[in-house]
């Protein structure tokens, strides 16, 4: 197990550990997810490996190691060094992990980078015509994520549930559809005048989650990711007589 642990800790080593390293053996800063002041945040926590590493679990696809409280010695040493005497209050050996509630998962989801949708415009090549039904769509698909919250595995099934189309001339449209490529026109817009515009699409995601392989439950809320704007030149078509005999 130790041979698995060490490369992983090296990969996430975020700086030299503090004085406790000298007293507690192999200590490292690792990023863990925790709730602080109501926000689910990524924080650095000192993890000191037990000599037999029996408390460490490493699985390749997860974002942080799982561990139990093997660093009471480091905590007690540091607390004692600053004159804290009630060590059980500060370095509990049996503090339970907080419960992973739907609200906590929503907070974590909101702090998880979700991909913006790529806006596809037809006609292509960044040009369209005034008073022409310009077509918009995106190809955002559902996806899965696995995170760890409070030391527990949380699987997320995430899908785009709605879209806010911003056409760049002040007009917007909200849909549940992602639109379709030509010739199945679903999301279209006619620009009234020529000029440069920057249309974009914001994507709202919904999700289900399960904890440690348990039953799936809905995440009680949504997360909206703003999309990048696309450069679009709206031009006028001028009739041109190209030949007459």
């Amino acid at each position: 197990m130790r041979t698995l642990l060490l490369p992983f800790l090296v990969a996430i080593l975020l700086g030299p550990p503090p004085q406790a390293h000298a007293q507690a053996g192999e200590c490292s800063w690792v990023a863990v997810t925790h709730m602080i002041t109501g926000n689910v945040v990524t924080q650095l926590e000192l993890v000191c490996a037990a000599s037999d590493d029996s408390a460490t679990e490493v699985t390749g696809s997860e974002i942080e190691p799982s561990f139990t409280h093997v660093n009471e010695t480091a905590c007690a040493t540091l607390a004692g060094a600053i004159g804290i005497s009630h060590l059980l209050l500060w370095c509990p050996s049996d503090s339970p992990d907080p419960e992973v509630t739907p609200g906590v998962v929503l907070s974590a989801l909101r702090q998880t980078p979700l991909p913006p949708s790529e806006l596809i415009v037809q006609p292509p090549n960044g040009r369209t015509l005034v008073n022409f039904e310009t077509n918009f769509y995106t190809e955002t698909h559902p996806f899965n994520r696995t995170i760890r919250l409070f030391g527990q595995r949380v699987d997320l099934r995430i899908w785009p549930s709605s879209f806010e189309w911003r056409f760049g001339d002040g007009a917007t449209m909200a849909t549940e559809s992602a639109g379709s490529p030509y010739p199945h026109l679903e999301i279209t817009h006619s620009y009234a005048s020529k000029g440069q515009v920057g249309p974009s699409v914001d994507t709202t995601y919904e999700a289900d989650f399960r904890v440690n392989g348990g039953p799936w439950r809905p995440v009680p809320g949504t997360v909206t990711t703003a999309g990048d704007s696309v450069g679009l030149d709206v031009v006028e078509a001028t009739p041109t007589l190209v030949g007459y005999h």
């Binding site: 975020l14 406790a20 650095l44 926590e45 000192l46 660093n71 905590c75």
Partner: peptide
């Protein structure tokens, strides 16, 4: 730095 002390890392122990 020239501006005085600044926090460069915060970590927790438990």
């Amino acid at each position: 730095s020239s501006g005085g002390w600044a926090v460069s890392l915060i970590g927790f122990v438990r």
